[in-house]
Amino acid sequence: QGEKVEGLQAQALYPWRAKKDNHLNFNKNDVITVLEQQDMWWFGEVQGQKGWFPKSYVKLISG
């Protein structure tokens, strides 16, 4: 089970394309609201879409 977080935002360092239905698509420089953190994967929201993404593709910009 991941840790729920509030008020964290991350900026995409690279584009990410979903490999599964529960993954989040985003483009480089998109700002993602992080909702949950697990070891290597984070759950977040961007442009009304929610899903999992690899944390190595983003950098935290707040929180």
Rank of each mutant, 00 (worst) to 15 (best):
V46Y: 05
N29T: 05
P15Y: 06
V5L: 04
N29Y: 05
K50W: 06
Q49W: 05
F53A: 00
E6I: 05
Q11M: 10
D21H: 14
E3Y: 15
W52I: 03
Q11S: 12
E3H: 11
V5R: 15
K55V: 01
V58A: 08
D21W: 10
K59Y: 04
V31L: 13
L35V: 04
Q1V: 15
W42V: 04
N22R: 09
L8Y: 15
W41R: 02
K28A: 06
K19Y: 11
V34I: 15
G44W: 00
M40I: 14
A10W: 08
Y57V: 11
Q1H: 03
Q49T: 05
N27R: 13
S56I: 03
Q49H: 14
Q9S: 11
K55E: 04
E36F: 03
T33C: 08
G2M: 15
F43N: 03
H23G: 08
A18V: 07
P15S: 14
V46M: 12
L8I: 09
G2K: 15
N25K: 15
Q38A: 03
D39E: 11
N25M: 11
D21N: 06
A18P: 13
L8H: 04
N25L: 05
A12S: 02
H23D: 12
F26L: 11
E6K: 05
V31F: 13
K19T: 14
L24S: 00
L24I: 04
D30L: 01
W52M: 01
S56V: 10
E3R: 11
F43K: 07
P15K: 09
K59N: 10
M40H: 05
K19H: 10
F43W: 12
E3F: 08
N22C: 14
K20M: 12
L8D: 07
N25W: 03
W52T: 00
Q47L: 06
D30M: 06
W52G: 00
D30G: 01
K19N: 12
Q38W: 05
I61E: 11
L60G: 08
K20N: 15
I32D: 02
D39I: 05
K59M: 10
K50R: 15
E6F: 08
L60W: 07
L13E: 06
E3P: 05
N22G: 13
G51N: 01
Q47G: 13
D21E: 10
Q38C: 12
N29R: 08
L60I: 06
L35Q: 12
I32F: 03
D30V: 04
V5N: 03
N25E: 11
L8T: 13
W16L: 12
F53H: 01
V58T: 04
G63Q: 06
L60E: 13
Q1M: 07
Y57C: 09
N22W: 08
